[in-house]
C-alpha cells in the first residue's frame, strides 16, 4: 500500500461554539482521488481550507505528506484552487504565473509558466492582461496557477462549477495526468458526473460530519444521486 498523502484526524472547526466540522477523520493514500460531496454549507470549503493550511482547525490534526500544512514548507507541495481564480486582473497571464512561481520558490519560474501556458492553451495570449480575458481563459489560467509548482497534492474546491466546455476538458485531462503520475487529488464538487468519473473514492459531508467515505463503485457512476440517497439527509 502506498503512503498516506492527506491525513485528516479528528478535525473540528468552530464558529464561536458552533461546530461547522465535527470530528472529520479520513486518509487519502498517494495517487488516489477523493471527491467530497455534500450540500452547500455542509462544510466542504471549510475542510479544504483547513487542509490547505490557511484556516486553523479548532481541534484535530491535518497532515499533508506527513507535515502540517500550517508550515510554509508543506504548502509548497499543495496546489489549491478555490472558488475564486486567485489571478490578478491587472497583470498579464505570464506575469501572474511568474509571480506564483517565484512565491513557490521554483528554480525557473519563467520556464514553468511558459510550460503551463502551453498546456492550458494560453500560449498565444500570455502577454495579455487577465482583465481582458474571457471567463473560460481565466479559468484555464487558474488551473495553470494551481499546478504550476508541480504539487504532489491537489486541493480543488468546486473545480467544475461554472467552467465552459473547453476549460472542463483541460481540467479533466490535467487531473487525469496528475493522477497517472501518482499525485493525489481531493476535490469538493456539485458536478457529480464529471467528478465521479475521475474519483477513486467518495466522501459525503453532511452537516459538518463525514457521513460516508468509501471507494467509488460502478453504481455511483450510473446513478450519481446514489450516495445522497443512501447516506445523505432527506
Amino acid at each position: 500500500m502506498s503512503a498516506v498523502a492527506v491525513d485528516c484526524a479528528g478535525v473540528w472547526k468552530f464558529y464561536g461554539d458552533f461546530p461547522a466540522l465535527r470530528d472529520i477523520s479520513f486518509q487519502v493514500p498517494e495517487g488516489r482521488c477523493l471527491a467530497l460531496i455534500g450540500r452547500n454549507g455542509a462544510g466542504k470549503t471549510t475542510l479544504l481550507r483547513i487542509l490547505a493550511g490557511f484556516s486553523r482547525a479548532g481541534r484535530g490534526q491535518t497532515k499533508i505528506l506527513g507535515t502540517s500544512p500550517r508550515e510554509a514548507d508543506a504548502r509548497r507541495r499543495i496546489g489549491f484552487l478555490g472558488h475564486g481564480i486567485a489571478i490578478y486582473d491587472e497583470l498579464s497571464a505570464l506575469e501572474n504565473l511568474r509571480l506564483f512561481g517565484k512565491l513557490y520558490g521554483l528554480p525557473d519560474p519563467d520556464h514553468a509558466a511558459r510550460h503551463w501556458l502551453e498546456r492550458t492553451g494560453l500560449e498565444r495570449v500570455r502577454d495579455g492582461l487577465v482583465r481582458e480575458f474571457s471567463r473560460g481563459m481565466r479559468q484555464r489560467l487558474a488551473v495553470a496557477r494551481a499546478l504550476l509548482h508541480n504539487p504532489s497534492v491537489l486541493l480543488l474546491d468546486e473545480p467544475f462549477t461554472a467552467l465552459d466546455d473547453r476549460a472542463i476538458t483541460v481540467l479533466q485531462s490535467v487531473l487525469r495526468d496528475a493522477l497517472a503520475e501518482g499525485r493525489t487529488v481531493v476535490m469538493s464538487t456539485h458536478q457529480l458526473r464529471e467528478a465521479l468519473e475521475l474519483a477513486t473514492d467518495v466522501g459525503l459531508i453532511s452537516r459538518g460530519r463525514l457521513a460516508f467515505h468509501g471507494e467509488r463503485t460502478p453504481e455511483m457512476l450510473s446513478d450519481p444521486g446514489w450516495v445522497y440517497a443512501r447516506y445523505g439527509e432527506a
Binding site: Y15, G16, D17, F18, G208
Partner: peptide, 13 residues
C-alpha cells in the same frame, strides 16, 4: 450570547 449564537446556527443548519 455565545450560546444563543450557537443555537441560532444549529437551527439554521
Amino acid at each position: 450570547q455565545r450560546e444563543i449564537d450557537y443555537l441560532r446556527r444549529t437551527a439554521h443548519a
